[in-house]
Amino acid sequence: MKTSLPPGAYRPANDTWGSFKRLCANLPEGSLAVVDRRVARLHPTLLPTLKARNPRAVVLLTGGEVAKTFEALEQVVAAGLAMPRSGTLIAIGGGTIGDVSTVAAHLLKRGVRLIQVPTTLLAAVDSSLGGKGAVDITVRGRVVKNPVGVFHYAEEAWLCPELYETLSDTQLREGALEAWKMVASLDAELFRAYVRREPSLERMVKDARRLKESVCAKDPYEHQGLRRVLNFGHTFGHVLESVSRFKLSHGDAVGLGMLCALDVGRALGVTPEDAAWKVEDALHQGPGVLGRERTMDLLQRATLKDVTALLSADKKAGSAGELRMVLLTDIGIAVVRDVGAEVWRKLWPVWTRGERP
C-alpha cells in the first residue's frame, strides 16, 4: 500500500511555471499565507487572488533580515495556531520570507505542507529549493546568520515570471551571482556555455535549480557532508554581510565571498591560478560581481577580533576552530578543505587594500 510522505520530508523538486493567478487556483482553502509587504505593493492583484481562496490568515512581513527573527517567527506561528496538521503554508517572497516560513511550517502542528513562491531571482535559483530554513540570533552585538534552523522540504514551488519583472538591477545581479556560483563550482561545461553566451533568466533559474537538486538528492539532510559544496563563497560572504550590518545583500556578499575563496584556494595551492582568473573574470563579465574595493571598505570597518568571532560562530566551522571552506580544484569541481586561521590572516592585509593577492 502506497503511503504519502510526512510533511517536510525529502521529496524531489516539484517545480511549476506559470502565472500566480493560474497556480493559485489550486491552493487549498484555509491556507496560511506569508507575504512580503513590498511584493504585495508591487503586484496589486496578488492579495485579491490569494483572498479569493479563503485563506485562514495572511501575514505580511517586511523582507530582509528583519524577517528572520524569533519575533517574526512567533507572528507567523500565532497566525497558524488553528491550522490542522493537513494544512498548507504558502510563502510568497524572497529568501528571508522563505526561511522564516520554512521554520514555521516545520513547527506548526509538528509539520504542515509548504509551498514556496520565490519572488526574487536569488530565492528562485537557491533558497526556495533544498528544504533549509533558519532564523538569525545576535551574539555579542553581532547578528549571526542561520544558526537556528530546520529541514522542511516544500511540496511545491511556483515559479511565476511576472513576479520577476519588478526586480531591480541589484536584485537581478545577486540572483545571477548565486546561479553562477553553482555553475562555476559544479558544471564546467555549463560554465563555458555561460561565458560564450549569457543565459536567459528562465534558463538560469532552471539550470541552477537542476544543479542544486542533483546535490540535495544525494544528501537531503546534510548527514554526509555532500551539500557543503553548495557553500562556495558563503564563509567570508556571511562575514561581509554581518560586518555591513546587512546593508550588503546576500547575493553580493556571496559574490565577494567567492573572490575570497578563490584567494584562499590559490594560497593553499588547491585552486590553479588560471582557473581562479577565469572564474573571477567571468563573475565580473557575467553577473557583475562587485569590485574588491567593496571588500576593502567593509573589512576596514572591522577588527580581526570581530572577523574571528564571526567565523568561529559560523555553523560550518570545525570543532578546532578551523574553517570548512569550499574551494575549487578546477572549474566545475568543488572540494571542502579545512583552512587554518593563519591562511586567511595572511590575506587580510591585501583584502583590506582592495587588492588581489
Rank of each mutant, 00 (worst) to 15 (best):
K2A: 13
T3L: 14
L5W: 01
P6C: 01
A13C: 08
N14L: 03
R22V: 13
L23F: 01
L23D: 01
L27W: 06
P28L: 05
G30S: 11
S31G: 07
S31Q: 00
V34E: 04
R37C: 10
V39Q: 07
L47Y: 02
K51R: 15
N54H: 15
L60R: 13
G64I: 08
G64M: 12
G64Q: 09
E71P: 00
E74Y: 11
V76R: 01
V76C: 02
M83D: 12
M83C: 13
P84W: 05
P84T: 14
T88L: 08
L89P: 04
I97E: 07
D99M: 07
T102Q: 06
T102E: 02
T102L: 06
V103Q: 09
A104M: 04
A105C: 04
G111S: 03
G111Q: 04
R113V: 07
Q116C: 12
Q116I: 08
Q116H: 15
T120C: 10
T120Y: 11
A124I: 04
A134F: 05
D136F: 02
V139G: 03
R140N: 14
V143I: 14
V148A: 13
G149A: 01
E156D: 12
W158P: 00
E162T: 09
T166I: 03
L167M: 15
R173G: 03
A176R: 15
A176W: 10
W180Y: 15
W180T: 03
S185W: 00
S185V: 01
L186Q: 13
R197M: 13
S200E: 09
D207Q: 05
A208K: 02
L211R: 12
E213P: 05
D219M: 07
P220Y: 04
G225S: 02
F232M: 09
H234A: 06
F236R: 04
F236G: 04
V243E: 03
V243N: 02
V254E: 11
M258D: 09
D263H: 07
G265N: 11
G269K: 08
T271V: 11
K278D: 14
D281F: 10
G288L: 04
T295Q: 08
R301L: 09
T303E: 10
T303R: 11
L304R: 14
A313T: 06
K315E: 08
K316H: 04
A320T: 13
G321W: 06
L323C: 02
R324F: 01
V326P: 08
L327Q: 12
V336W: 02
W344H: 03
K346C: 06
L347R: 08
W348R: 09
